[in-house]
Design a protein around this nucleic acid. Sequence first.
RNA 1: UCCUCGGUAGCUCAGUCGGUAGAGCAGGUGGCUGUUAACCACCCUGUCGGCGGUUCGAAUCCGUCCCGGGGAGCCA
Length: 452
Amino acid sequence: MHVKIRNLFEDQPVGETVRVAGWVRTRRDAGGFSFVEVNDGSCLGNLQILADKGLANYDAEVRRLTTGCSVEVEGVIRTSPAKGQAIELQAGAVTVVGWADPETYPLQKKRHSFEFLREMTHLRPRTNALGAVARVRSRLAYAVHAFFQERGFIQVHTPIITTSDCEGAGEMFQVRAMQQAGGAEEFFGRRAGLTVSGQLQAEVYALAMGDVYTFGPTFRAENSNTSRHLAEFWMIEPEMAFCDLAGNMRVAGEMLRYLLNDVLVHCAEDMELFDRFIAQGLIGRLHGVAGQEFAHITYSEAVERLLSCGKAFEFPVQWGIDLQSEHERYLTEEVFRRPLIVTDYPAAIKPFYMRVNDDGKTVAAMDILVPGVGEIIGGSQREERLAVLEKRMLEAGIDLEEYRWYLDLRRYGSVPHAGFGLGFERLVQFVTGMANIREVIPFPRTPGFAPC
RNA sequence: UCCUCGGUAGCUCAGUCGGUAGAGCAGGUGGCUGUUAACCACCCUGUCGGCGGUUCGAAUCCGUCCCGGGGAGCCA
């Protein structure tokens, strides 16, 4: 049985015989022996293997090991006499499991650009940064479930294939069976697509189970080419019955702070890497975010502030027009310097399901903006009043009959409810400081790009 | 999709005025050393993103397409 290198670093079982398995990161030869650094993905650090000429395959194999080779090593853990590592493994046997021809293996034991690594999504997790991203992403996903499960939320698997377009959420990919290519009847009896949001279906379960959440893949067929958009991404969407906008904001803030605290504790070594090489000062900033309430202003207040700040924006600010990226960045990065919740947007620029405020002009919407990433959460209190919702849907040109099931939720036992969507990759971006969203998902899908 | 900058060796890049390309790293060979971005010596490496055009001659100028960075839109 193999031991995870992470456990060896934690337990430091000096004198014990152990077996590890992983991939060679680098080899250095000394007189009569070699240092082989092995990484098994369990942690950022490599285990230094001491392999001397007494090994049967020393000249034939050990001295030919290069970056990328896979090995099994059995030996005794010792305290390391040299600086750089606390323990090392004195090899009793080194088995080469798989070679990696250095003439053709693309990864070198030096830094590569992320653009270059993106050309090989199948090899890039073998690098320090992408491996760290994978571990942090996994931990964050775990913490998301922990947060909601600890609070009694029920996870709902909303459909991947859907026939309802969550209006305003973006362009849909169409789903068709191959056999219908000739124009035969739709497989599902009507047009279907990949989900752009699980919200509408989450509302169904919220109005039965109370507090629910979804955490699944989401698809947008937009021709977006930016560092923060993907055609396939993962989204977390809690939906809470008997909850208003204030409750929605509270849960969103608590969740983000919980996630940051969790990852700072459990991914400390990986976070150090990001802090040092990806985004200087990252850990300090995240601690700051995790330790205080988020700032909050209404859309109208935001407009006033932008109008009176004296700063010249490329796009003019005017009540009724959606905030531009430059406005959002100015507010969260320069004015407040922390996550900012903007609420109560004009009804005209928001989707039909958001609850109309008493002023009749705004809706109980909220966006959470975060320095460096921008919008990380979008949500709202939902319109629970049947008549108001029907009016909004008609104005939006939506066929009420198609959404009969959605309206039924307001027709029978309607309650105030609210929810939001958290872009999981944007969360990972914010936490790791990675500049491009294509680096925080294992296999990014963007227009013209989906290699494996 | 729009604006803008880029694409040269396996990687990161230089390449002047249009005259057919070179530096570090990587790789190979040898040496040295409890090494750790190891070190020293020598050697190898090119569809200059694709296609077309201008020219005696194009990495260099023009057109077009593809891909990438930055910004914008759409949003999470």
